[in-house]
Design a protein around this nucleic acid. Structure first.
Lengths: 210, 210
DNA sequence: TAGATTGTTAATCGATTAACAATC
DNA sequence: TAGATTGTTAATCGATTAACAATC
């Protein structure tokens, strides 16, 4: 690729995608960076700068075509292709993710769950089978797995992550409360640390009081 | 307060807390910014700058006392006090959060769930009662509610958030996929947008391929 | 004391905002 | 055409890193 795009910019792209989706639903055909900036409460300058990292999607005097921009951002985010997800750890969080239909609409198909708990054997979530963990290797060999969501206790997360990488999984969505040590591996990791999020909220609460 | 501390710094504090907790568990008594920087893969300079926003917790020639620094960061994050959480939306995600015992250890007690679904009436999660939503007002009047976690569909989130603020809830942990419009309200909001996170992962996958 | 390491100032780097020529 | 609005360069702002005097 030409130039590396900064993390700050990438982080904002899903939000653009969301707002454009809403505009699309509302039947809005075109929007200027100025109007979008009002809705999103960011500067118009930032919107134009951000988008121009990826290409010139607008037109002088007109603004941006909502449908076109929505689709282009979708492509940037890889939403024009399907992704198969497996969930490793079929506890409450894993099951909650499997029940979430929103991801499917974005092209992310959850194709299996895995757990060590024998009481879950043979069960399924919305038709998505819960496998025993010892079936993981075979499953990964027989199916394309694009993303593995890690929803098991943190003590098992690092080990499992390394194992998944060996099985050919190159993307990990990490919900365990550890930083996975995969720096040398050919893998991308996105972590969701719920308790970190809760602590930030707690910090803001304390600040507001004082 | 003297000076506003930047969001970037605050965002890193939970991570420091986590690493110091691990060091504490490992029986490590003191650590230098240099050694911590190696573990955390950040610069020592950043660690010292970050911490000095809140005070001088270290000692020249010695480093930082792990237990002391851990406790101090805990105080900064408000973990020295208890927080009562209610979960509004007792679907899969809400139930998953209620089942998560980690939060309790950090001082966050989930005291009730609420839902509109009558089939959940009278049920409980680990002894935490699921109430019907029409009991929300009364509950908030009779109990101290510090944080409301919003785990309902996004169509109801904004309305519910406003209602909660009216009931005296000043902190919202938002899991709905919308930006709550509470700018004029005296409330702090922390959002967890799971699909945004998934899209960022997807972006990284596409990038790695090319 | 001498070595280690902080707290803090200065330098660098990157990200955001402002401005405006290009152009639809 | 005239007005609107982009794409892009320049200016500003903020965050990170480097350096080092202070001091345990």
């Amino acid at each position: 690729m030409a130039k590396e795009i900064s993390k700050a910019v990438v982080k904002r792209m899903p939000r653009y995608y969301r707002y454009l989706g809403e505009l699309l639903d509302d039947g809005v055909e075109r929007i200027s960076s100025k109007d979008l900036s009002k809705r999103m409460r960011v500067t118009a300058s930032q919107i134009r700068q951000d988008l121009n990292n990826f290409g010139g999607f607008g037109q002088q005097g007109y603004g941006y075509n909502v449908k076109y921009l929505y689709d282009e951002i979708g492509k940037i985010l890889g939403l024009d292709q399907k992704h198969n997800i497996i969930i490793v750890g079929a506890g409450n969080l894993g099951q909650a993710l499997a029940n979430y239909t929103k991801f499917e609409k974005l092209g992310f198909d959850i194709i299996a769950l895995f757990d060590v708990n024998p009481s879950l054997k043979g069960k399924d979530i919305r038709g998505i089978k819960i496998h025993m963990l010892d079936e993981l290797d075979e499953f990964c060999q027989e199916n394309r797995v694009d993303i593995a969501a890690l929803t098991m206790p943190k003590s098992k997360a690092d080990e499992t992550a390394h194992h998944l990488v060996k099985l050919g999984v190159h993307a990990i969505w990490n919900f365990a409360h550890v930083d996975l040590d995969l720096d040398d591996e050919d893998v991308v990791v996105e972590s969701v640390h719920l308790s970190d999020s809760l602590m930030r909220l707690s910090y803001d609460i304390v600040q507001k009081r004082s």
